[in-house]
Design a binder for these strands. Structure first.
Lengths: 338, 338
DNA sequence: ATCTGTTAATAAAACGTTTTAGCAAAATCT
DNA sequence: AGATTTTGCTAAAACGTTTTATTAACAGAT
């Protein structure tokens, strides 16, 4: 009944031609290789009738390529990454490429494993939101002339393709927005990871305050440990907000910190209003539907995905890799409440 | 410099042993095959030093298995699926399995493509949230004795492993909750897909109303077209709520419908309070942080993922496939406001 | 009639593994 | 001392493709 899957050999036998002939036809090289139309039609008919699909694994082994793009993100259940993944998948699918993805959970060990795994699967290209400590592996890929695009996170040591937003500017503008609204004590809630992306967000906050010649209160910057359970973060933030009652504005450096922060404020029964403003990083339904609506720094998902996939295909179709490009996109401040 | 990747042949040459010996050592069959410890150590040393990783593609071709599990969902950017994906990935990773995922967008064509693609990649097992119209393909997989687990959606014709929640009951209980609160006109906002899962949700709503001998108003059930842009849905719902001012409670049959619904209500300036209650399907941050908090039917993500992966590994390790199991889990009604 | 070139097809090697079957030397048994 | 078993290792086939030569037949040119 179910038996084995068909192979090119079965088709060849059935059509009374050689394996080679079938292969040429499968790969559209039939005319170029002078196969007669009679044979082409006969073979194509059999292929269609029997529903033969070539074994991609064998094909990969022979050709060294796989039509697969590896996507490595920090956490696929983070809406930012899930959104990017979905958009990239869409665009890749149209060019007949598939995506393998995996989450690193920000563990260099896991990230390295993943890169090696993808390598041994002969993935054709890599899209990576890199965890720190994976520089050598990524450099290795580049050395081997594999198409690579980094996104979201930038690793300073690497000369690789990169797509990201101008975090410094985004954060600067958010802070500036607060300053224009006469805020004096602008807190920053950020995360305890020393990756460029996060550092830039801190810097933007600081620089804006300094540029406008306001006093910079270092104690109003709180760095939440990355792996800390959510409940603990909430408690920590409640304590933070209580301790510094002078805070009149808060910038959250990530999506999930904003959510924890809003939860904390809700538990404290602290109103978000003209005396206490909030801006979140990365927009989401949560912020739009919140009462009051929460302003947010919106990363242009579609644009990011578009640029990533373009860079990838650019590399895939070039004979030799073009010089690495850095695409820095502008984030947009969505002002919702005052 | 970068050269080609190492092969088992290179290692064999360097160690002055045969390819076979290296292979046995790689696969932990060294002792069983009477390889001397001296040779084992020598070879392992070289493998480690040179950082040799066997080519998984070649391995797959030879063995017919890939250590890859295919995951097919409707949309990876839906938090429900992203959450499941992440949990499954975690658990699979621990057993040295990887995930390939893709989104079907509920198009049978794309779903079929994906199944075929995974097949030709020699994926070891399939986790599918099936689109309607893919019955034959899935039946085909089962015929070929491939491990398969369906989840979320159930296809009635198929005798396959399945993990899902009791949608009828969940919906029934949500409606019952409204009835206990003396609601008379309980609307249902659902989607225009005739999949079991959605039908059951409608049925639960209807049955509860009938069981409590309330009049069932068919016009209070609105079915939103699946592919309709969000903005249109919102307008449609505004119109719906205005048209039937008697509505005193609404059950949303999906996550994203609830979000559109809340947006509609916000635009209408309609308060959610004791005179107008709401329950959403699938919990999320949005509902917890909403003012007032929104009650929700929570699907037990962790439990679902756990059951899926267990069923998969059960099948992977059995010599012959065990009889299909259906695991129906209970959803939980999280009551938040009245 | 021989040479040249084109047309239509194929045989065989290669990709990097796993695995079957087998062989020589050493160890054990009779 | 010869027969048998165990130890330690390997040659070669196989997995299903793609691709490089190669061939055989025939047409056209000399």
């Amino acid at each position: 009944m179910s038996s084995k899957a068909l192979s090119i050999k079965d088709i060849a036998k059935k059509a009374n031609v050689s394996i080679t002939t079938v292969s040429f036809i499968l790969n559209g090289k039939a005319v170029e290789k002078n196969i007669s139309t009679a044979v082409i039609e006969k073979v194509e008919k059999i292929i269609k009738e029997d529903g033969f699909k070539p074994n991609q694994v064998a094909r990969s082994l022979r050709t060294g390529s796989s039509k697969i793009i590896g996507l490595i993100v920090e956490d696929i259940s983070n809406p930012f990454f899930a959104g990017i993944a979905r958009l990239i998948e869409d665009k890749a699918y149209k060019k007949d490429y598939k995506i393998i993805y995996s989450s690193t959970e920000n563990q260099p060990g896991k990230a390295k494993d993943l890169i090696n795994l993808f390598k041994s699967r002969q993935v054709d290209a890599y899209i990576i939101s890199p965890a720190g400590g994976t520089e050598e592996e990524i450099q290795g890929l580049i050395k081997e002339h594999k198409p690579v695009v980094l996104f979201d996170r930038y690793l300073p040591g690497l000369n690789a393709n990169y797509v990201g937003v101008d975090n410094f500017k985004a954060s600067y503008q958010a802070t500036e927005h607060f300053i224009h609204r006469k805020k004096k004590n602008i807190a920053l809630v950020t995360v305890d990871l020393s990756v460029e992306q996060i550092n830039e967000r801190s810097e933007g906050h600081r620089q804006a305050i300094l540029d406008y010649e306001l006093p910079f209160h270092a104690e109003l910057v709180i760095r939440i440990p990355f792996a800390q359970p959510k409940e603990e973060t909430i408690q920590q933030l409640i304590h933070f907000f209580n301790q510094y009652a002078e805070i009149d504005a808060v910038l959250f450096a990530t999506n999930y910190l904003a959510i924890s922060g809003l939860t904390a404020l809700k538990q404290m029964d602290k109103a978000i209003d003209k005396d206490f403003s909030v801006i979140a990083y990365d927009d989401g339904e949560v912020f739009k539907l919140h009462t009051p609506q929460i302003s947010a720094v919106e990363q242009p998902l579609e644009e990011i995905a578009e640029n990533i996939i373009n860079l990838i295909f650019q590399q895939l179709s070039a004979d030799q890799l073009p010089a690495p490009q850095k695409v820095i996109l502008a984030a947009k401040l969505l002002v919702r409440s005052s």
